[in-house]
Design a protein around this nucleic acid. Structure first.
Length: 755
RNA sequence: GGGCCUUUAGCUCAGCGGUUUAGAGCGCUCGCCUCACACGCGAGAGGUCGUAGGUUCAAAUCCUACAAGGCCCACCA
């Protein structure tokens, strides 16, 4: 159940306070710093983006080969040119070097020399760096540290200066000389034209460019040198990695553990300042000078204003900087309770047991909650991470606005019912695999909800109710299982609870849902209720009614997590209850007593009934027509048990007029036969039996059994199997062979009897 | 380039480290408006488990390679 007292919004006062506190604390610890680095700059939104907010898309573009003139010690052209390939000629004015690979014999003699940056008078060095790919383009790279991450690294390794020629709005600045003021796209064309005119353009090739774009605005991202606030992630990631390796945090399915380790291992610092108008403001304050300008160097870090004359930084924090505190900031952290201990809610609910999440936010959110939890509270925020797949459309595509393939769960709830939607999704979400969702799939869930409702009516219509259909008298506690079918359903219930418990314990939600579904439909409805319901026009006896109500109560407990609304509604129809005793607050069921022998007997009842039904279908016997049947069983005890405990049941469910059970009765003439286990079921069909059809059917049956027998005998003939397989396994195979042989024998006898 | 996932019935998928000649839902076939439910009931058809090897008494299941499809990360200037 949800505890709505803890509903929170990240912009609430308490959480805002926690966010500010976190920033100040990390700053004090030296884990938050301001640095000039290349950031992903979105020129449209004029903000920095984290790597997670940047998508790489392929766009058609060009690869230009540009000739850089080599100069001598005096700066005079030597007549030699060094060719460089680039997709971004507009950044040439920001070049501060050219790099080649140290092993590249073509350029070895040029390393240490200087070249002239095209369209400028600047001379820059040729350096050798391992990062250069000799076989790409011209084999040499123009180094533009101010506008490329790799170049930034190369520049740093070789002490090259960093020039930035871009304005925040995507136009070129005064360092770009003649190109100042032009938009980057316009400048690109202009530079190419000028290079061509200067005979410095060696080649233009069509080329697919990997283009970084903003996942927010779609704008092409510019790597831009900019002062931003960062969190040092290494120290935080180390704690998280340790917790993962010791198993303090476990992932389900386990493969996501590796994914998480990969995320944490990267250890790249986290840019947290954003130039957006909405968010938690950075708790940085600048003193204002007399002229009204800010003294950015003399900033103070503080939740509240340090005093008059200070203005707060306009930047806000990345949304995840508040989200990563979610597991504990929602519980009152960092405020303390009265005695200096954590808030009572923290003590009660932290750490959490499980976090359920889609894999798409594993790196951006889950990993950070882990780090924040360990760093700020000293404990993991959750012990298990259950990773689910993503819901895709029925063709397997991500849902998106542009494709218009989104499926609104509220629409689906309107159409099929909330329980139907919930249940269907539960059955579909197998072990973190993506779900290809076809809305028509919700029909299955709807049908199940309907089935639950109708099944209630089988016995519910015998309950005394008031005008509002609320029960007025309590049928009393559930009696102990006494009849064969009750003992069987009690056994099946116990098995089902155990299976559901196990599945849920492993976060196998779909398996749990499927198990519940099968139990309700296949066992409760198809068999228990069919046996328990009275004949038309007759009442249900009080004991059966009490058992049915008790059983259904247990069924509803099991169903409730998957279909909360229908189950709750039915819960109140079972017996009068004091207000507040909702199913939502009821105990989860426990397995209860089992009756293995009786359950096995009932299983053979099911087989006998199935056999008769098979014959009825085969001979198109009208459902309303009562027919006779004989069941031959191997021993007296079994015959007695079947006859006494289940004779009436079989008669009813199979639509029989009479049922005879015996050990060695004479086979009825002209009868259809079906073998089930070590029993034989005969249905005399004098007059209606089609001898040819029955012979064909028996032959088919014999063939199938013979095939089975051959495979089993094949195993048994294999000496290594008999000698090396566990004894029990061999014994089972021997039994199977014996049974199959006996069945074939019986079928042949029946066939012979047909004449 | 690195990593991961998927491949089982016409469709969508289970089958959780081995053992009743492979299961479900939908669809399909046959018969039923049997007084809880036609959103239902009963009976069926349908699969050499992507390919090729290997391990084993035994492989859809474990190992290797390959093929096809998909995802994530990095990235080629």
């Amino acid at each position: 159940s949800c505890d709505w007292r803890f509903e929170r919004f990240t912009m609430d006062d308490g959480l805002s306070r926690a966010v500010q506190h976190t920033f100040v604390r990390l700053y004090t610890e030296g884990l938050v710093y301001r640095g000039d680095y290349l950031v992903n700059w979105d020129p449209d939104n004029q903000t920095v983006l984290s790597n997670e907010e940047v998508d790489t898309v392929e766009r058609p573009g060009s690869l230009w080969t540009v000739r850089y003139a080599v100069v001598d010690a005096d700066g005079q052209d030597t007549g030699e040119f060094l060719s460089v390939a680039t997709t971004r000629p507009e950044t040439i004015p920001a070049d501060t070097g050219v790099a080649v690979h140290p092993d590249d014999d073509r350029f070895r003699h040029l390393v240490g020399q200087r070249v002239r940056v095209p369209l400028t008078d600047r001379l820059v060095p040729v350096v050798a760096d391992d990062a250069i790919k000799m076989d790409f383009g011209a084999g040499a790279l123009k180094v533009t540290p101010g506008h490329s991450e790799i170049d930034f690294e190369i520049g740093r390794r070789h002490g090259l200066p960093t020039l930035s020629i871009l304005n925040p709005d995507g136009t070129l600045n005064e360092l770009a000389g003649a190109y100042a003021g032009l938009d980057r796209a316009v400048a690109k064309k202009q530079v190419v034209a000028d290079l061509d005119a200067a005979v410095l353009l060696a080649k233009t090739e069509a080329y697919t460019v990997q283009t970084p774009v903003s996942s927010r605005s779609g704008a092409v991202i510019e790597p831009l040198l900019s002062p931003q606030w960062y969190v040092s992630m290494k120290p935080l990631a180390e704690k998280a990695l340790a917790a993962i390796h010791t198993g303090e945090v476990a992932f389900h399915p386990a493969r996501w553990k590796n994914e998480m380790v990969r995320w944490l291992d990267e250890g790249r610092d986290w840019p947290i300042s954003r130039q957006l108008w909405w968010g938690h403001r950075i708790p940085i304050w600048y003193p204002t000078r007399d002229d009204g300008s800010r003294d950015e160097a003399a900033f103070a870090v503080s939740i509240d204003s340090p005093g008059a004359g200070y203005v707060q930084d306009d930047d806000v924090l990345d949304t995840w900087f508040s989200s990563w505190l979610w597991p504990f900031a929602t519980l009152g952290w960092p405020e303390a309770g009265g005695d200096g201990k954590p808030m009572p809610a923290m003590q009660a609910f932290y750490p959490g047991s499980v976090l359920v999440s889609g894999y798409d936010i594993l790196g951006i959110w889950i990993s950070r909650m882990l780090m924040a939890g360990l760093h700020f509270t000293g404990e993991v925020p959750f012990r298990d991470v259950a990773v689910t797949g993503m819901v895709k459309d029925k063709l397997g595509r991500k849902m998106s606005k542009s494709l218009g393939n989104g499926i609104d769960p509220l629409d689906m709830a309107d159409q099929y019912g909330a329980d139907a939607v919930r249940f269907t999704l539960a059955t579909l979400c197998a072990q973190g695999q993506d779900i290809k969702l076809d809305p028509s799939g919700f029909e299955g869930g709807r049908n199940f909800a309907n089935k639950l409702w109708n099944a209630f009516n089988v016995f519910g219509r015998f309950l005394e109710t008031d005008a509002d259909a609320h029960p007025t008298t309590d049928v009393g506690p559930m009696p102990d299982p006494a009849t064969l079918v009750e003992q069987w359903i009690a056994t099946r219930f116990a098995e089902t609870v155990a299976a559901v418990d196990e599945a849920l314990g492993k976060y196998r939600i779909s398996e749990a849902a499927q198990t519940v579904y099968d139990f309700v439909w296949r066992d409760v409805c198809d068999w228990y209720l069919e046996v328990a319901k009275p004949l038309p026009g007759e009442p249900m006896d009080a004991r059966t009614l009490a058992f049915s109500v008790g059983l259904y109560e247990n069924v509803l407990r099991l169903v409730h997590p998957f279909m909360p609304f229908v189950s709750e509604e039915l819960w109140w129809k079972l017996r009068p209850r004091p207000a507040g005793q909702a199913l939502a607050a009821a105990a989860w069921p426990t397995p209860g007593a089992t009756f293995p022998e009786e359950a096995a007997t009932f299983a053979s009842v099911q087989e006998v009934v199935g056999a008769v039904r098979q014959i009825r279908a085969q001979y198109s016997v009208a459902p309303s027509k009562r027919i006779e049947a004989e069941v031959h069983v191997p021993d007296e005890a079994a015959a007695e048990a079947l006859d006494r405990l289940a004779g009436a049941t079989v008669t009813r469910l199979a639509g029989l007029s009479t049922l005879r059970v015996g050990t060695s009765m004479e086979k009825p003439p002209a009868s259809a036969a079906v073998l089930v286990g070590r029993m034989a079921v005969f249905v005399p069909l004098a007059g209606t039996i089609d001898l040819d059809a029955e012979r064909a059917r028996l032959n088919k049956e014999i063939d199938a059994k013979a095939g089975f027998l051959r495979s089993v005998e094949g195993k048994l003939a294999n000496e290594t199997f008999v000698s090396r397989a566990p004894e029990a396994v061999v014994a089972v195979e021997r039994q199977k062979a014996a049974d199959a042989a006996a069945q074939i024998e019986a079928l042949r006898a029946t066939l012979a009897d047909l004449g």
